[in-house]
Design a protein around this nucleic acid. Structure first.
Lengths: 234, 234
DNA sequence: CAGTGGTCTAGACCACTGA
DNA sequence: CAGTGGTCTAGACCACTGA
């Protein structure tokens, strides 16, 4: 372990144990230089990492303080479905149900945003694990942003994975909700209408251009999302 | 904007725009020192931040490369309920339904973990927004870890907020699922049994000691969780 | 085995802000 | 206005690892 890592984990351990309480002031950097016999840059590197992780607040002239804890943000793992299914030891497949290229329907703001003056690609399909439906997917793709997707078949990879490979480094917003399966989703998933399902809806942009919108519906008993939070982050 | 921030945002912008493609090699640090007329520490600070944000991979002897994008982890905001309700402009209240101190029930691994040889506090209640049920909460608290909670009333703050104030810096794991409301949850939330609900279940530790377990059940139409991902993170 | 990143030093000047 | 953190320099030695 390098020196700045040791300083960092020393302080983190004292904060997590409560020896350093929230609001309490830490020694000034000069004191830490003495204590650890190191230069200021090394202390600063350790403290910067702790500040980025949210464990401390650094304030000029005032000093460095143990932060008040917040539970507000956690890291959520949103796995790639083929990978996740493979990890469970099951065979993955994507069944394409419908696919069309069309103009946006007037009055639908989302479709207008995806296809400003051009066309969009609409896809529905079902993700299968071990031959059984895992999730129903409805997707819209901007053919302005990704013209080459018009020619893609999804034999190798489902649309989401295809996009991840072909359109790197996008920004996204995900919305998670519980919904009752409507008739279409129930039929696709082979469950009773009204069954509680997890809806994972995502909008993706590249800069100011909308790339895709997708909603995946999972039967409630088939899928959990897990998020973790703790000192290990950052 | 400082120099290392400028270097960082220059490179991040080129990656997000695709000018630097995934897998592509970046100039070596010495070249960046020349380009920006700065010292190696400054270049290194910018590149370290980009590596921590997952945009680049740095490999000794080989060089620095644009990372292959992953959508796998996103930052999820899990708001404090009183704050979230206040932000919506509604009045928040917590209605305590039941509260008991007891020994763990034999055979329940979770309860045994929370109260190794001592007792645990079991709480049920309902979070109210503008007088209407927002979420039903079931909670277990280790009185080994938080003995002073035995004496707490929840007039000022619901149990989760109370714990956040009194037990700083814990680690947690959250599990999100869709469930059908059972009879108890339906009664507490004043909805029909079987209604699709979002279940947010969290286990919290302090070091190796379990502190609390909680499940909050939200009617599907009352609550969404939102997560964001993009270059702005890190 | 040489090129690359990783760490660290001992200084310097500056910006901010609360005593 | 003085004490604190924020940034930056110009070097050094080292660890790793792939050509």
């Amino acid at each position: 372990m390098t020196l700045h890592e040791r300083i960092r984990s020393d302080i983190a351990a004292r904060i997590m144990a409560g020896t350093l309480a929230p609001g309490e002031r830490l020694p000034i950097e000069a004191a830490m230089m003495r204590d650890y016999g190191c230069s200021r840059m090394t202390v600063s590197k350790a403290l910067s990492a702790l500040a980025a992780a949210g464990l401390i607040d650094r304030r000029k002239r005032a000093g460095t303080f143990v932060a008040r804890p917040r539970l507000h943000s956690m890291v959520l793992d949103i796995p790639d479905l083929p990978q996740e299914v493979a990890r469970r030891g099951q065979a993955y497949a994507f069944r394409l149900v419908r696919r069309s290229v069309r103009r946006p329907i007037a009055g639908r703001a989302r479709e207008a945003g995806l296809a400003k003056r051009g066309r969009l690609l609409a896809i529905s399909g079902v993700h299968l694990a071990a031959g059984r439906p895992l999730a129903a997917e409805e997707r819209l793709v901007s053919l302005d942003a990704v013209p080459e997707m018009a020619a893609a078949d999804f034999a190798d990879a489902p649309p989401g994975t295809w996009l991840l490979r072909h359109v790197p480094w996008t920004e996204a917003e995900t919305r998670i909700a519980a919904i009752a399966a409507d008739d279409a989703a129930a039929a696709a998933l082979a469950i009773a209408p009204g069954t509680a399902c997890l809806s994972v809806e995502r909008e993706t942009w590249r800069g100011d251009d909308a790339v895709t919108w997708v909603r995946q519906v999972f039967p409630g008993d088939a899928y959990d999302l897990v998020a973790r939070f703790g000192a290990a982050r950052g």
